[in-house]
Design a protein around this nucleic acid. Structure first.
Length: 388
DNA sequence: CTAGGGTTAG
């Protein structure tokens, strides 16, 4: 272009960012700075996304400085993107100082970010508190349906059935029975997390918006409650309705088969889903298969599955699933193989040492407990006398 | 040209 303005630079930076091409976006930003111009309120939000995408929090901190220096704290979109940046970095203390900044304005996005941020940080009661504060403060903007999945998930992870019911009632009073798919999905998931599978089923049967995530969630909920046969039934029904399972659906159904000991169904679903829908199984799928085989006592078969893979692509969760199966079935030989791979992959994870010692102990092999303990125990050595 | 919600895995 013979002549560039702010608009053209901003389009380039935003477009690279939206395409997840963060280093290209950064290169454009640096070229822009060379021209001697300063970023405006359109330039700044993508910069925080670039910082997160590159895993370079320092760049985001620098951009926070630009926001303050250039006086963009009062622009609500800029401040919200800053808030999201600190939440994604896991630094809630910084997020709080942005939230309580006297110069900043708040809107419904600000509140939604805070509520989902508290939830992601595991601070569920703070999320609930924040939701109640939002209801008090919501003069000026309408209650926003985007908050509801976040608050439901915070209540559900807290395990508080009454709170989930309370929010459900709130949804019906404010939005009627026309909640969108993410809200229905969150209701199904969190009723089950609070132990009320009946309520999950009722929501599943009555919601008006159903998508693939709805089916996946319900399949997973049955698995959570040890109802593998219901999961398999629903999985087949879903396919008959014309939904194509994705990678998450497959982990949900495999985990459910595993928890219910449905070995043959699990194996069949694994191979037929992969061939029918043509996607590559991920590390998680292999971990689920090892878990399934291991729980059912097919430890040799599970070990063979891992041995057929390229050694570098066998992950800790696959060996971990195998080790857990060996603990269950008191298998020393395969347990030692799995444990020694884990000692290489995650030397500071004490639960692996404890698992292997548990196998020795269950077989009355006190010598093995002491040897592994002396060689490998770092933090947990006080456990050895108890095991012996 | 700028910001926010839902499902999974030892």
């Amino acid at each position: 272009m013979p002549q560039r303005n702010m608009h053209s630079w901003n389009i380039m930076i935003a477009s690279y960012t939206h395409s997840s091409m963060y280093s290209d976006a950064l290169t454009v930003f640096q070229a822009f700075k060379q021209c001697g111009s300063l970023p405006d309120h359109y330039t700044l939000p993508p910069l925080f996304k670039i910082s997160m995408g590159l895993g370079e929090p320092c760049f985001g901190w620098m951009c926070h400085g630009l926001v303050v220096k250039l006086g963009y704290e009062e622009i609500v979109v800029v401040n919200n993107s800053l808030l999201e940046f600190y939440i994604k970095c896991g630094t809630m203390s910084q997020a709080l100082s942005v939230f309580f900044n006297q110069n900043a304005h708040r809107d419904s996005v600000t509140w939604n970010l805070m509520i989902s941020g508290f939830g992601k940080a595991g601070l569920y009661s703070d999320a609930v508190h924040c939701f109640r504060e939002m209801l008090k403060h919501q003069n000026g903007f309408e209650l926003d349906y985007m908050t509801l999945p976040s608050i439901l998930s915070a209540c559900g992870k807290e395990g508080d059935l009454l709170k989930v019911k309370e929010v459900h009632g709130f949804i019906v009073r404010n939005f009627g029975f026309h909640a969108d798919a993410p809200i229905g999905n969150a209701l199904i998931d969190n009723y089950a997390k609070c132990g009320s599978l009946k309520d999950s089923e009722n929501v599943f049967k009555t919601v008006c918006c159903v998508n693939l995530v709805t089916w996946t969630t319900m399949i997973y909920c049955y698995g959570m409650h040890g109802k593998g046969e219901e999961s398999v039934f629903l999985f087949e029904k879903m396919i008959n309705k014309g939904f194509r399972p994705n990678a998450v659906t497959l982990t949900a159904i495999l985990a459910s088969c595993s928890h219910s000991g449905l070995l043959d169904q699990g194996k069949k679903i694994f191979s037929s889903t992969i061939s029918d829908y043509g996607f590559e199984p991920t590390a998680e799928h292999y971990a689920c298969m090892v878990d399934l085989l291991g729980r059912c006592g097919c430890l040799q078969e599970a070990l063979q599955l891992l041995k057929r893979m390229k050694p570098s692509s066998v992950t800790g969760s696959m060996w971990g699933a195998l080790l857990a199966g060996c603990v269950m079935h008191k298998n020393v030989e395969i347990g030692e193989v799995a444990a020694h791979h884990l000692f290489q992959l995650e030397p500071n994870n004490t639960s692996n040492y404890i698992a292997l010692c548990g196998i020795y102990q269950s077989r009355g092999m006190a010598h093995g407990v002491a040897t592994e303990g002396l060689i490998n125990f770092t933090k947990g050595s006080f456990l050895i006398p108890f095991l012996i």
